[in-house]
Design a protein around this nucleic acid. Structure first.
Length: 852
RNA sequence: GGGGAUAUGGCGGAAUGGUAGACGCUGCGGACUUAAAAUCCGUUGAACGCAAGUUCGUGCGAGUUCGAGUCUCGCUAUCCCUACCA
């Protein structure tokens, strides 16, 4: 019978859906397993990155089902966000309509891959049934004092009169839509107090032993814990005091100036009369610069003096006070003590403006470097601290500061509170009403959800569409009934995705986002799989949510994701013209002009200029035109081949090169199995007799190795190579033995999690019942793995010289091995005239003769 | 500047401190075919050799060990993340 992937795949997808093969089974005494891939944004089309991500999770989920777990394997949609609003602006289609169309299309694409989702738990974050609970959870944060408002800087497009997201500002600081230079503007914004959890988020990284080291390091860096001190400088002739944060209190004696951020609140107070204009001009100039300009590398540091002096609390010396663009208002106290001798940035600044450099630490041995000396050392020029180790001096200075009331030790985190306000329509409305009497009042739970109004006009200009809808905005205060106004900001979409894994545990609950029991039953996610691009934000926010919800008594787990796998990118063949720079150097594959050389090799050329192109594998992206459509690949080869290819070509965490020849190779493998099994079926029943011990050993070796490869490390690439070996062994094996049938069945069982459709079909054709998705994972028999004789490697001085064959029982017998090794002809050559000084035996493996 | 990762044939990649290169791709040779495709068989790290085999070989340099791709120390290169974070 001819193998037609598309027919076979459609058939089994229908069968599994009809019998509910992928639904979470009712609770019983089996252990649970929660397998999750990061849910996608419904752009409308699946790309290869999705295919790889979800195939990995599916293989894990299917294998765990066969191994006797109750598996939760859900899928949903991260469905709020800007692209839907852009579609509305550009094409006049409502974001909800556009989004739901895309979801329908992508759901069909996922289904064509044969992914074993429990679709009854599907969620879309833009549906009121979901975002109602996002709002409900926001109010739990509010109750806990973890949601608050404050002024914050936003990107403001002066032409369109609208707020822009960071990703809508290009590298030159211009609006993507209007092209106007983006300005900074202060607006009152909502924040979540993630900084309250900085220490817990940092500490618990240690418990995530099955996360990649890389991701844990990235999160730790992002949280950025620094141990140091806050020290206070008094100001000559003024009441004000300047607190600074430093990690190097030992260098306090070397301070030659104090410097504030231009935005520091004390700037106005402290500026001397004669410096008013200079300072005002500098502050204005800095505020005009974009973040990018201000933080650009190798840009000279700039500043101006305030015309006033501060008093060094340790030495009593006076030093000038400056403001400078290299000091950040948001970090620490927004003020820094300038120690040019021991800080690279301060050194550069001091050089620029001729400020003095006073060294107070020298290396233990050797000469101090020409620039700043930032390593530990010995104190000098520091009065009674001289001779002290700089580490000890740190503690001493902090001790004196605490005793003298001018400072104390302090922990500083780099992590900032999470700004969740977005001035847009297509997001979850923040369930708050602003009342002139009561202030910010939460919308009562029984009035949730605050539903997004539908009759909205999208222009891309002016304030958020929500703010212009008077009928929606104007409501009575839930508390006192006074006419009040709804909050018109919506939430960052990361809010929606910070708890979706909890909703899947109880997706159809209409009374709560989830019950505590269900959450506890399924969480933490046993295996989470996604791209490393979410290593910080999504994963950190989800951890934060989980900890807050635990502290609010909504569930009992401290961490949402027990094991994390960050899969590599999918790369495509990429043609670029080295003569060009920028976006137009990429030539998509179908546009490349091929010219044949005399020797038959084909060289790619630019279709416009005729220049020779370079070829490389690069991450697939629209702009490079190097993407491969999953739909086309599935139509051409079938989902099983595509699945096997993405699993085989590289280990999961490495980048994967989409190579058509390798896809063909995988297709050949599928066909080979098909032919092998159908030929066996045609043959079966004739002469089935006897056990083929060698074949049986290969079968059970394959079971053992594949089972191990399906463990925590998810080595699907080597699992598939084991299956290829088993296939090769069967091809060479004796069909008349009864072992052959065992081999064929085992092959299909092991293949099922990876390539479910055609293995299920062949299983059925074999006449096996029940259907393959109900069959459990095979176990290997230790007895089947034994051999009568083992090959022992003979080494002389550690070099392989010969092999000997000995009965298994004697594989560790020193005398036997030594005698045979000396007799082995090729080894013997290297023993002539030499004395054996030592014999090393590794039982069952090798014997090494050390001679001299 | 800080952090993380990686380095093995023509290519993707395998190798609990014990036969380096499994498995696959490509290339080459052959079978089948009127021919081609498909399929099947053989071969495919380098050098020397008729062969048996020998020598070299896992980015570079040391070290530990009977034995190192693997462990230790020191470098180099590439990639990714992050960054005036005081």
């Amino acid at each position: 019978m001819k193998y037609n992937p598309n027919t076979v795949e459609a058939k089994w997808q229908q069968i599994w859906a009809a019998v509910g093969a992928d639904r979470v089974p009712a609770a019983d005494d089996r252990p649970t397993f929660y397998a999750l891939g990061m849910f996608p944004y419904p752009s409308g089309n699946l790309h290869m990155g999705h295919v790889r991500n979800y195939t990995l999770v599916d293989a894990i989920a299917r294998c765990r089902r066969m191994q006797g777990y109750r598996v939760l394997h859900p899928m949903g949609w991260d469905a709020f966000g800007l692209p839907a609003e852009n579609a509305a602006i550009e094409r006049g289609i409502h974001p909800a309509v556009w989004t739901h169309q895309n979801i329908a299309q992508m759901r069909a694409q996922l289904q064509a891959l044969g992914l074993s989702y429990d679709w009854e738990r599907e969620v879309a974050t833009c549906d009121p049934d979901y975002y109602r609970w996002t709002q409900w959870l926001f109010l739990r944060f509010w109750e806990a004092g973890l949601a608050y408002q404050k002024e914050a800087t936003v990107n403001w497009d002066p032409v369109d009169q609208t707020v822009l997201a960071n990703e809508q500002v290009d590298s030159e600081g211009r609006s993507w839509r209007s092209g106007a230079l983006v300005e900074k503007k202060k607006l009152r914004q909502w924040f979540l107090k993630i900084t309250d959890y900085a220490e817990a988020l940092l500490q618990d990284l240690d418990t995530l032993t099955r996360w990649p080291e890389k991701v844990r390091a990235m999160q730790a860096n992002w949280i950025g814990k620094s141990l140091g001190a806050e020290l206070t400088f008094a100001v000559v002739g003024a009441e004000a005091r300047i607190p600074v944060f430093t990690t190097r209190p030992d260098t306090l004696g070397g301070v030659s100036y104090v410097v504030l951020a231009p935005e520091h609140p004390l700037v106005g107070v402290l500026t001397a009369p004669g410096q008013q204009e200079t300072v005002a001009a500098f502050v204005a100039e800095v505020s005009r610069e974009s973040e990018r300009e201000r933080t650009a590398e190798d840009r000279p540091k700039r500043g101006v003096p305030l015309g006033r002096e501060a008093i060094n609390p340790l030495t009593g010396e006076t030093v000038p006070i400056w403001i400078a663009d290299y000091v950040l208002a948001e970090y620490g106290t927004g003020a820094v003590m300038g120690v040019p001798a021991h800080d690279g940035r301060d050194f550069a600044f001091a050089q620029q403006y001729g400020l003095p450099v006073w060294a107070v630490i020298v290396p233990k041995n050797g000469e101090p470097p020409a620039g700043a000396y930032t390593d530990p050392g010995v104190m000098v020029n520091s009065g009674d601290l001289d001779g002290l180790d700089s580490g000890a001096a740190k503690a001493e200075v902090v001790g004196r500061a605490e005793a003298g009331g001018w400072g104390q030790g302090r922990v500083q985190y780099r992590l900032r509170d999470w700004l969740i306000s977005r001035q847009r329509y297509w997001g979850c409305p923040i369930p708050i009403v602003h009342c002139p009497n009561c202030g910010a009042v939460p919308v009562p739970a029984d009035q949730l959800p605050v539903v997004l109004p539908e009759n909205v006009e999208f222009t891309g200009r002016g304030p958020s569409p929500l703010a212009t809808l008077q009928a929606w905005v104007e409501v009575p205060c839930p508390s006192c009934g006074t006419p009040a106004r709804r909050e018109t900001d919506t939430m960052d979409t990361f809010m929606d995705s910070s708890w979706y894994f909890l909703r899947f545990a109880d997706a159809r609950n209409e009374a709560l986002p989830f019950t505590r029991d269900r959450a506890n039953a399924w969480l933490p996610v046993n295996q989470y799989v996604g791209g490393v691009e979410h290593a910080i934000l999504h994963l950190l926010y989800s951890r934060f949510f989980t900890k807050v919800l635990r502290d609010r008594g909504l569930l009992d787990v401290a961490e949402p994701f027990q094991a994390l796998l960050t899969q590599g990118m999918v790369q495509g063949l990429t043609y670029s013209n080295p003569q060009k720079t920028g976006k137009d150097r990429w030539i998509s594959a179908e546009k490349v002009v091929w010219q044949e050389n005399a020797d038959g090799s084909r060289i790619p050329h630019d279709p416009h200029t005729g220049e020779v192109l370079t070829v490389a594998y690069m991450t697939m992206s629209k702009s490079k035109g190097n993407g491969v459509s999953p739909q086309e690949a599935i139509a051409k080869y079938g989902a099983d081949t595509v699945r096997l290819f993405v699993l085989f070509k590289a280990p999961p965490e490495k980048d994967l090169e989409w190579d058509e020849a390798d896809v063909e190779g995988q297709h050949r493998f599928v066909y080979r199995v098909w032919r092998l099994v159908t030929e066996y079926i045609a043959f079966a029943g004739k002469n089935s007799q006897g056990v083929d011990r060698n074949l049986r050993r290969e079968i059970h070796t394959a079971i053992r190795n594949v089972t191990e490869d399906f463990g925590e490390n998810h080595r699907f690439n080597t699992a598939i190579s084991e299956l290829m070996k088993l296939t090769n062994a069967l091809q060479e094996g004796d069909r008349t033995s009864e072992t052959y049938g065992e081999g064929v069945q085992t092959l299909l069982q092991l293949l099922f999690p990876l390539a479910p459709h055609f293995s299920a079909e062949l299983w059925e054709m074999l006449g096996q019942t029940p259907a393959l998705h109900e069959v459990s994972w095979p176990a290997w028999e230790a007895a089947a793995l034994t051999v009568d004789e083992v090959t022992i490697v003979v080494q002389v001085n550690g070099k392989m010289r010969d092999n000997i064959l000995v009965p298994t029982a004697q594989g560790g017998d020193r005398e036997v091995l030594l005698a045979q090794a000396q007799a082995a002809p090729n080894a013997a050559k290297f023993l002539v005239g030499k004395e054996i000084r030592k014999v090393v035996v590794v039982p069952g493996k090798l014997i090494n003769l050390v001679v001299g």
